[in-house]
């Protein structure tokens, strides 16, 4: 890594430079599955951020004692623990959100972003940087989920956080909240995200 490792760099890179899932094309399953409504997308993003932050901190702090051969098993145990904690807490305090996200909460365990950051970053870097990385990537991911679910909910249902915001005679573009709509929406956004830096570098 050529760039200086500062906390602010590690934190902010998650918002643009390797923004998941657009730049870091990981974590696509929840992105496609739970972004029908903004509430679900945001809930999923925050849950993922929580898991990512704590698994990064724990893994980074015990990285020297984990033997290389069993590192993935150890990471998964730690990640799974935090996922179950999120599940229980969500069930206890946000039951309606828990009902909507359902099976996708336990599936955070296999979200590639989390294991990916543990393996690629937390296992090689000190705690404070890992925490910044986890929080940055997590919030970046939340931001992406919010963005894509806002597009899908506004176009597909004519609502935003469940409130009607389109004009009265608006006929919801129901395709957007169906599964194929998610793929096409994601594809178009990915294309746009690739177009913007190309334009910027072209202008310079």
């Amino acid at each position: 890594m050529a760039k200086a490792k500062s906390i602010s760099y590690e934190f902010f890179k998650g918002f643009w430079e390797i923004l998941p899932p657009f730049r870091l094309v990981l974590g696509l399953c929840p992105m496609l599955a739970v972004t029908k409504y903004v509430e679900n997308g945001l809930g999923m993003g925050i849950a993922t951020t929580f898991v990512l932050l704590f698994s990064n901190i724990i893994i980074s702090s015990i990285k020297s004692v984990i033997p290389k051969k069993v590192r993935i098993a150890s990471y998964i145990v730690i990640i799974a623990t935090f996922v179950v904690i999120v599940e229980l807490v969500m069930q206890a305090f946000f039951y309606s959100l828990f009902e909507k996200l359902g099976i996708f909460i336990p599936l955070i365990v296999v979200n590639c972003i989390i294991l990916g950051r543990a393996e690629a970053f937390a296992s090689k870097n000190p705690i404070h940087l890992s925490a910044a990385d986890g929080l940055g990537i997590g919030l970046g991911y939340t931001m992406s989920l919010f963005f894509i679910s806002a597009i899908r909910e506004i176009l597909g249902a004519g609502t935003f956080f469940g409130m009607h915001i389109m004009w009265g005679s608006y006929e919801p573009f129901a395709f957007m909240i169906e599964a194929p709509g998610a793929f096409i929406c994601l594809g178009l956004l990915l294309a746009m995200m690739n177009l913007i830096p190309n334009k910027l570098s072209g202008a310079n």
Partner: peptide, 21 residues
Amino acid sequence: RMVVVLTVIATVCGFLLAAVR
């Protein structure tokens, strides 16, 4: 070492989960 580390991690996680539950 592998056995010990994994056992310790799993035990700690187990206790943590039991407490949260």
